[in-house]
Simulated assay, not measured.
Amino acid sequence: MELIELVKKHAPVTGEQLADYIGVSRPTLRSDFSLLVMLGLLDAKPKVGYFLGNAYRGMDNSETRQRFDHMKVAEIQGVPVNIPDTLSVHDAVITLFTENADTLLIVNEDKKFVGIVTPKDLLKITLGNAGAASIPVSMVMTRFPNIVTLVSDDSVADAIRKMILHQVDCLPVITSVDESGQGPEVTGWVSKSNIIRLMSDITAAEELGEQGL
């Protein structure tokens, strides 16, 4: 992760300085900074700049870092919230609230992964559209394969890189597409919450180790 390495080398460093190092504008990195701070990999102080966060410092020894580098998505993925592609927008909104989900994964009648729908997608279709509630989610979802995904054997580090690169909060974990051309099945998902929980566990374990517990 280029940003983290730059912060490690130059901390404390401002967002403008980091943007100059990479050769992009400061607004381009805004979502990257937000995610890395949320994950605890970076921390920031007003008028000071960015520096390494507690989660990164917890991994900053060879044993912990090696364990993290070899950790697979299968070890942290959560249970997906799947809905059928025939479900109405109205029922999809209800599912978002009842399941406390940020993203809904859409499957067809054969239980194959066909797309995702987010609160933003649902809001767009319902605003000023009296009949929107009865529209099936298949009409508003983002369709596979135009979706960033993971497989269970991907590394957690790759999942974080994809989240940062594509500026997404959730990544579906799917099976490989088989030779028959059938779509993949959903096996789980990785969200910011999964990553944050992992970072917290690593930091806590490191602190206990330092205390000799």
Rank of each mutant, 00 (worst) to 15 (best):
V7M: 00
S25V: 13
S25K: 15
R26W: 02
D32H: 14
L39T: 10
D43T: 08
A44T: 15
K45Y: 12
K47L: 12
Y50K: 14
F51R: 11
Y56N: 04
R65I: 01
R67L: 11
R67E: 14
E75T: 13
Q77S: 12
G78S: 15
V79C: 08
N82L: 13
D85V: 00
H90W: 15
V93P: 09
T95Y: 10
L96Y: 07
E99R: 14
D102G: 02
T103H: 06
E109S: 10
E109A: 08
V114L: 00
T118K: 01
P119S: 04
K120Y: 11
L123T: 13
K124V: 07
N129G: 05
S134W: 04
I135G: 03
V137H: 04
S138P: 15
M139L: 08
V140S: 04
M141W: 01
T142Q: 03
T142D: 03
R143D: 12
V148L: 02
D153M: 07
V156T: 13
I160L: 09
R161E: 09
K162P: 12
L165H: 14
L165F: 14
C170A: 05
L171M: 03
T175M: 05
V177M: 13
V177N: 03
D178E: 07
Q182K: 12
S191K: 05
N194I: 02
R197V: 08
L198I: 15
M199E: 04
S200P: 01
A205S: 14
E207F: 06
L213K: 06
